[in-house]
Design a binder for these strands. Structure first.
Lengths: 216, 216
DNA sequence: CAGGACCAGTTGTCTGACAACATATCCCAT
DNA sequence: ATGGGATATGTTGTCAGACAACTGGTCCTG
């Protein structure tokens, strides 16, 4: 978190492994395994004698779910949120389009079930939110593209994190269930254009709500 | 690689750490740090007594550059290549659009320089390929969206891997430099629609060439 | 037959030591 | 005085052995 929030700048050298172990009261093994995780995500780079250096942001795996979570643990910058919505606007409508083309009967059934739960429980409840997530997961699965699933899964992590901010600021959010219903029927009807349009509307509304709650 | 190529199926249990250490003739520390890397990328999950289990493909971080590289180390499945082009077709044209909007004079200069090197050296040389990569990197940077940079960077890893296949099959590939020039001038002119169109053409050509070299 | 206590095996952590490597320094020859 | 090579030193990389923590299965008991 200190790295992603910019407390260590790219190019900076982290404290040595012995020092990290001592200050955190753990053994060097634990420190090393932790550093390996960060290195696997592209955050750092270690070389003998030179120490462990923060890599350039361009080398970071920003779409890694953990990195996204760490980014949103602290209040993320406005431009980052903006970038996230830009990316959603690029990816998700096309995904909805594909889902409308390739969805199976079984997937329609599962999405319909999730939608019912959302309508019954509401999006304020934990069950409703789980159903929402389920709805989107099945939609992605229907695209029949593993890469899209993985990408949108990561994005989903970040979106859920922003949702926490929206809830924290306790504004009255508009109900997104009708828009979900539109999206669902477009996919059921096998109408890619309508699915794309519905998805765009959904993201725009989320974008507006998020902006309201971030700029009070 | 054994995991991503499906030699270990999701749900399967890996050999224990002691056994892995012995069979590979390394210490357990090395095995553990390696497993931590895989866990960081979502491939595996370890629990005391239960062992280390392969996670579902849906949990894998498929866009991680390493995972992409491992996937393409072996001959990837046709559907995976198809999915990759589908994703490129969704992301890159929009990225070109943004780049045409937000590019700075300096970025135009750097892209122009890279293009010159490509024209001079040709795409068969290492210098030409480096310039090609540089061209695309600057383009991404011009979108002013870190998430897009990261995403397309990962995709670039995979694309370069497929390029190796194309070269290996030694078909006569069409020259993509004129298309790059079209894309460059659209971005220079600040014409988003033209940039998007040029990018679509570029990807289509790459797609066709790749299909030819994969299905002989 | 159900529920709880126990056992055993695997990962998780700790410790101490040495090897490999790269940087920085120093010295020597030019 | 200066460039280049040998050397010193500090950091990461690897090894070995031991014990702790956790958990899944087994066994026993009510």
């Amino acid at each position: 978190m200190a790295i992603v929030t910019g407390q260590y700048l790219p190019g900076a050298i982290l404290p040595g492994e012995f020092e990290l172990a001592e200050t955190r009261s753990v053994s060097r093994s634990v420190v090393r395994e932790a550093l390996r995780i960060l290195a696997a995500k592209g955050l750092i780079e270690s070389r003998p004698k030179a120490g462990t250096r923060i890599r350039n942001r361009g080398d970071w795996n920003l779409l890694d779910p953990d990195i996204l979570a760490w980014t949103f643990e602290a209040e993320p910058s406005a431009t980052f949120v903006e970038n996230l919505f830009q990316l959603r606007m690029i990816v998700e409508p096309s995904a909805a389009e594909l889902a409308a083309k390739f969805r199976t009967a079984r997937q329609i059934g599962r999405m319909g079930h999730a939608l019912e739960v959302m309508e019954e429980m509401g999006l304020a409840t934990a069950e409703g939110q789980a159903a929402d997530q389920q709805f989107h997961n099945v939609l992605l699965e229907a695209t029949a593209n593993d890469l899209l699933v993985s990408l949108s899964g990561s994005i989903g992590t970040a979106v859920r994190a922003t949702a926490l901010f929206k809830a924290r600021k306790a504004k009255q959010l508009r109900d997104s269930i009708p828009l979900h219903r539109d999206l669902f029927s477009a996919i059921t009807n096998g109408d890619p254009a309508a699915a794309k349009a519905a998805c765009v509307t959904l993201i725009l509304q989320a974008h507006e709500d998020t902006e309201l709650s971030l700029k009070p």
